[in-house]
Design a protein around this nucleic acid. Sequence first.
RNA 1: GGUCCCUUCGUCUAACGGUUAGGACAUCAGGUUCUCAUCCUGAAAAUAGGGGUUCGAUUCCCCUAGGGACUACCA
Length: 480
Amino acid sequence: APSPTGFLHIGGLRTALFDYLIAKSLGGTLFLRIEDTDTKREVAGAVDKLIEILNWAGIKFDEGPRAGGDFGPYIQSQRLDIYKKYTRELLAKGEAYPCFCTEERLTKMRADAEAMKKPPRYDRACRNLSREEVDRRIAAGEKYVIRHKLPLEGEIIVRDELRGNLKFNLADLDDYVLIKSDGIPTYQFASVVDDHLMETSHVVRGEEWLPSLPKNISLYKSFCWEAPKFIHLPLVLDKNGGKLSKRKGDVAVEDFRSQGYLPEALLNFNALLGWHPAGEKEIFSVDEAVKEFDYHNIGTSPAIFNSEKLDYLNGIYIRKKTIPELIELCRPYLAENIALTGNDYKKSDEFLAKVINLERERLKKLSEIGEHTKFFFADNLSYDKEMLVWKKSTPASTKINLRNLLDILRKISQDDWQTKKIEAIVAAYIKENDGGVGDYLWPMRVALTGEKASPSPFEMADALGKNETLDKIGKAIDKL
RNA sequence: GGUCCCUUCGUCUAACGGUUAGGACAUCAGGUUCUCAUCCUGAAAAUAGGGGUUCGAUUCCCCUAGGGACUACCA
């Protein structure tokens, strides 16, 4: 039940994932409900975006605004009549009351309490207004909210399925707001009513909701409804142990997607934050996780979001993809490089397949493919000629070596121009001449890539083709 | 300030009350006919502190410390 604020927070994805794992492992139904009761934060198009990104991630809902279902509407702003009905019921039972206190008064009261180092709480000024006064003030057009009339003392024991029974003192609880002055319910009210009406068996939410559990349970009691089970997921923190916030880095799932993280990696990584399958296997799909998932094994301590491990997992999932899949996945990141060349062959899927095949094992994120493969597309490379010289070698001998290499390569037929064959011929030549392997291969590789790190010279020669290979080695010789 | 939650290598985590406290990421060192990466091998690295209970505590209880959440007419 996310609120549509414009983007999906990575923590929201994790919650959705655990929702999915819990529902599926129990043979249940997973439904999506949009909690858009905060009209001030409403963002146009947010619901569609939310559903789209959830879909991309691979979290499928059995019921929801798009999927349909018997318990709709699944968008809270379309359920206002329902909330009105239940508000009247609560009022009639004496479990709630209208409050006319102004925001100014409440704000001042809080500030005063804070200044005196006392817990800021509502003083329940309107709790015992007479029926006549209430009617008169409403008739006079005064604004009011509806508050939950909580017991003044005693304790309440609530249960979190992960942490067990939790005891709260009712005196510490506020008569919190159920219905705002604009008639729209708060989360606390709408979620309880909807969870009851939608026959929710398990409420899965972040640990930040734990403090409001006694309020929620109290509301179920006021309605005489049976409460669902509650599972509060441990929080995910940033690398400094703070809140994962938009200001401090990427938290939007959209951002992870555009950087080239795969949903498989994101899901696998998030599942490991708080849960672990039996045995030592850490690479698994969501379906595999469902098979042995038991929500009782979810941890309770907060976890730090460690992007290094995410990168590692992403690299693994990238390497699991087929080349045709990767061509489509990488195409957007390759567009800039493709634009560099006038050679039509280099724009073909055949060439892209070669490029991706050679670079895939170096990728942690798909977005890196652009920077890693520029030299495949560039007609002219720019690099310092010093880079051509291997370790203790000299420019003069490097030049000679490259010239000899050029002669050898020129003699290789078009048919034999393949990684393995080029390698065999060059290796034989080097051995014959008693040369140091690095004295030939390093300059050859630099000549073809202009980089200190790249695929092997033979792979590059194969991908580039005979003409371009000879051309680039020639240019390197001219530099020296 | 109050209420509540949490505490095993740097990080994510595993260990019916009995293990040389295991695995993974990261780090470091080797290996894999040039570089980088992949892959393989190895190393270093933890039970927050103090009390109990027990023949025996990472495990159960209490206290302390530390971290976090909540404390809105936001969710």
